[in-house]
């Protein structure tokens, strides 16, 4: 019934980098490329081109520049986006999902499950510099401030020249505000604050209320990866769209006819 193949192989196989046969490298590769594209684009758009590439037109303001800061004090090469991007940038950089993503894709720590990481030693987030990841709570408070600001920008984009209307830009900004809200309110840190830190939900009506909110946040949190990616892509696209319309490279389809 059973035949034996006497082929034997070396000890190396047991300690090879991995014995996995699936395409374990595909996810870290795609994630790494995706994050690289976003970081490059946002750096160029928001930081380098700042005042040299128009970021508002009609009722639309790029989410990278919302709320608008007008100041003559700073030189033109200083982008107003720096007053805004500190919050979403630090929030995403220290987000538990993105940590998983870039630890795998860039630090190869590890590149995938059961695939050996190349580093000789490892102390995780217990020492400098990665202990800084603990500022996530700080940055979450910062990100919470920007949620109503983005909603304000989105709602404002439906009103131009004394008329309520709608355009592709307003729809994009609305979707952007929705996705960023889902990403922010589905954050692990927010989940903890809203109820996860409690051990008992039944001590008072207030605790029971927090439990109900915690249940909702838990559902949103279970898809945190998808909120993270969809909000990242849409915020980039919204910024690009407003720039393109403002630069007259494309025409926005809307009910107001023209912004010029």
């Amino acid at each position: 019934m059973v035949s034996q193949n006497t082929q034997t192989e070396s000890l190396f196989n047991r300690y090879a980098k991995t014995l996995r046969k699936d395409r374990w490298w595909l996810e870290p590769l795609l994630v790494g490329v995706g994050l690289f594209i976003f970081v490059m684009y946002s750096t160029v758009s928001a930081a380098l081109l700042g005042n040299y590439w128009p970021y508002e037109i009609g009722p639309y303001v790029s989410p990278f520049f919302e709320p608008l800061f007008y100041t003559d004090i700073l030189p033109k090469w200083v982008s107003p986006a720096i007053f805004i991007l500190w919050a979403p940038l630090s929030f995403r950089m220290t987000c538990y999902y993105y940590r998983r993503a870039y630890y795998r894709s860039y630090f190869l720590s590890p590149p995938a499950c059961a695939v050996q990481e190349p580093a000789d030693s490892y102390s995780g987030e217990s020492t400098v510099p990665l202990v800084v990841q603990n500022i996530h709570r700080f940055s979450m408070y910062g990100a919470l401030i920007f949620v109503p600001i983005l909603w304000n920008g989105a709602i404002r984009s439906f009103y131009w020249d004394g008329e309520i209307g709608i355009g592709i830009g307003s729809v994009l900004l609305l979707i952007n505000a929705f996705l960023l809200s889902g990403y922010t309110f589905g954050c692990h840190s927010f989940r903890h604050l809203i109820g996860g830190g409690l051990n008992s939900f039944t001590g008072s009506k207030y605790q029971l209320f927090r439990k109900k909110i915690w249940n909702i946040v838990t559902v949103i949190n279970s898809h945190h990866k998808y909120w993270a990616w969809s909000s990242l892509i849409v915020v980039g696209l919204s910024d690009l769209y407003v720039h393109m319309v403002a630069s007259e490279w494309i025409t926005d389809i809307n009910t107001w006819n023209s912004f010029f």
């Binding site: 059973v2 035949s3 034996q4 193949n5 006497t6 034997t8 192989e9 070396s10 000890l11 196989n13």
Partner: peptide, 22 residues
């Protein structure tokens, strides 16, 4: 059908051995 089962045999100084098993 047969499957080519490659199993670690022995201790740290062991090796993988392949077996054809139904």
């Amino acid at each position: 059908p047969l499957v080519d089962l490659k199993v670690w045999r022995g201790d740290d100084n062991g090796e993988y051995i392949s077996y054809l098993v139904e």
